[in-house]
Amino acid sequence: MTAPDDDRRIDLSVFDDGLEVLPDITDDERGSSWGETAEDDTARLLEDRPPHWG
């Protein structure tokens, strides 16, 4: 007779191949996916600031 699944020990180290299962950020969240460059956009963002922001 076998033990219930709750009591069975499974060695998960055999499944660790070093690959990331779920990334922290997906490709569509990166600026490069939207055509943005890696340069500093601070000046452009300050220029595009709405007038009601003061």
Rank of each mutant, 00 (worst) to 15 (best):
M1W: 11
T2A: 08
T2K: 03
T2C: 04
T2F: 08
T2G: 01
T2M: 08
T2W: 01
A3L: 12
A3E: 13
P4S: 12
P4E: 11
D5K: 13
D5G: 07
D5R: 11
D6P: 00
D7H: 01
D7F: 03
D7T: 08
D7I: 09
D7W: 03
R8L: 15
R8H: 10
R8Q: 15
R8A: 15
R8M: 14
R8V: 15
R9I: 03
R9H: 05
R9A: 04
R9T: 05
R9K: 07
I10G: 00
I10W: 05
I10K: 04
D11Y: 01
D11S: 03
D11F: 01
D11W: 03
D11C: 01
D11M: 03
D11Q: 06
S13Q: 08
S13C: 03
V14S: 13
V14M: 10
V14G: 08
F15G: 03
F15H: 05
F15C: 10
D16K: 12
D16W: 12
D16V: 08
D16R: 14
D16I: 06
D16F: 12
D16A: 12
D16Y: 06
D17N: 14
D17P: 00
D17T: 14
D17R: 13
D17H: 12
D17L: 12
G18P: 00
G18N: 10
G18W: 08
G18V: 14
L19E: 11
L19H: 11
L19Q: 14
L19Y: 11
E20H: 14
E20R: 15
E20V: 15
E20I: 15
V21S: 08
V21W: 10
V21E: 06
V21I: 14
V21G: 03
V21A: 13
V21D: 09
L22C: 12
L22R: 10
L22N: 13
L22W: 13
P23Q: 06
P23Y: 05
P23A: 06
P23I: 03
P23M: 04
D24A: 11
D24M: 06
D24E: 15
T26A: 15
T26N: 14
D27H: 02
D27W: 01
D27N: 09
D27L: 12
D28Q: 10
D28W: 13
E29P: 00
E29L: 00
R30S: 05
R30A: 04
G31D: 00
G31P: 00
G31W: 01
G31L: 02
G31V: 02
G31E: 00
S32F: 07
S32T: 09
S32L: 09
S32R: 09
S33Q: 00
S33E: 01
S33D: 04
W34C: 08
W34L: 13
W34N: 07
W34D: 06
G35N: 03
G35E: 10
G35R: 02
G35W: 06
G35M: 02
G35I: 03
E36P: 00
E36T: 07
E36M: 15
E36G: 12
E36L: 15
T37A: 05
T37Y: 07
T37P: 00
A38C: 09
A38F: 08
E39G: 06
E39P: 01
E39W: 00
D40V: 12
D40I: 09
D40Q: 04
D41H: 07
D41P: 02
D41V: 05
D41Q: 07
